[in-house]
Design a protein around this nucleic acid. Structure first.
Lengths: 189, 189
DNA sequence: CGGTAATTTCGGTATAGACCGAAAAGAGAG
DNA sequence: CTCTCTTTTCGGTCTATACCGAAATTACCG
């Protein structure tokens, strides 16, 4: 597969970002390539196009499949596996967030819960600090959980609408404070 | 400074997480220690307590100050700098998000804009894919921008309220779709 | 202006983890 | 069953970067 300069630039940059997102560079590049590809491609082809060792491609594809961002596709009359990635960026993003929450946030919350108990009354200050931290994460995951059951397309529309609100309006909504919950419920009645 | 087992556990875990969040372990541990400390402490003390080289502490404190999560405090009659961190987890979190957006998302968006132009009509498929990606990030940053001007305390209250909504209600709100914007505007009138 | 306490700079080392390539394992086809 | 194509496993390097310690710099005191 031949890469145009535009494609190459995108893939390189995407790869760089991968590192900071808990995905290694090679994996990120693979996803980028699949994302730009019109049809599913083989591991061999990925390896050649990106100059990544065949074995690395194999390992990383496996990892990406575990994450649920890459799928195998079979082509009639071809023994080789062909791969494709999610085409909807939002879908892709959700997977990343979901996984990172599961791997990083959830264990932390668990640890904080235990810590608060262990600190007990004996270390009141430490306990309170940990409790604050815990409370914050619980609020955060609370909001996240609300989004879990909403289809991506709807979520996107929501985000779009919210992003287009005048700043003033956004602020006013925030100022509803504790009344916000009730207001929203009334809104959909 | 003496660490209790509870404190140590928290600091270690926090340090581990730091790596995956674009903050190195030492820096993350330093923040954790400061977070658990009742009063500002010196670099020397941090170095001893965490067994991190004095120079590393210095470098990392500088970095953390740049990020805006650590501040210097001066104690009367003491030439040494004392350090403290933000006490509000939400505040802390906002700083992290703001910085990462600036360092990672913004440049990517910029690159995508350029890429879309360069791809032009000649590489329609690639251009469309990049355009999709760009559009997604623009929606995302749009929502984020709306939150930037809202004080943390309000934002937290908002989050809390949203997290406590029944799933059904959350879904209904999402289903307002394109009407959501107008509904929200009416809500605050 | 010394002198000392405190901080920062900087070159070198250690370490984690990504990546490679050879070899093993697996999967059809004849 | 064996031969070939494909994928996976695994031990060894290679690389980025975190971290260290000595030396330089800065800040402040008497």
């Amino acid at each position: 597969m031949e890469l145009t300069p535009v494609m190459e630039k995108f893939i390189v940059r995407w790869g760089e970002m991968g590192g900071t997102w808990g995905i290694n560079r090679a994996s990120a590049q693979i996803v980028a390539l699949l994302y730009l590809s019109e049809k599913p491609i083989t591991a061999e082809e990925i390896s050649e196009t990106l100059s990544i060792a065949r074995s690395t491609v194999s390992t990383d594809l496996r990892e990406l499949q575990n994450w649920g961002v890459v799928k195998v596709v079979h082509v009639l009359g071809d023994r080789r596996d062909h791969f494709e990635t999610l085409v909807d960026p939002a879908e892709f993003f959700r997977v990343i967030v979901r996984e990172r929450k599961r791997r990083e946030i959830d264990p932390l919350v668990q640890a904080l819960r235990e810590g608060v108990v262990e600190a007990g009354g004996r270390e009141a200050f430490v306990r309170d600090r940990m409790r604050d931290m815990l409370e914050f994460f619980e609020i955060l995951t609370g909001v996240y959980d609300r989004t879990e059951d909403i289809p991506t397309s709807l979520l996107l529309k929501m985000a779009k609408q919210m992003g287009q609100l005048p700043l003033k309006t956004a602020l006013k909504i925030a100022q509803l404070g504790d009344g916000l919950g009730e207001s929203l419920k009334r809104l959909v009645k």
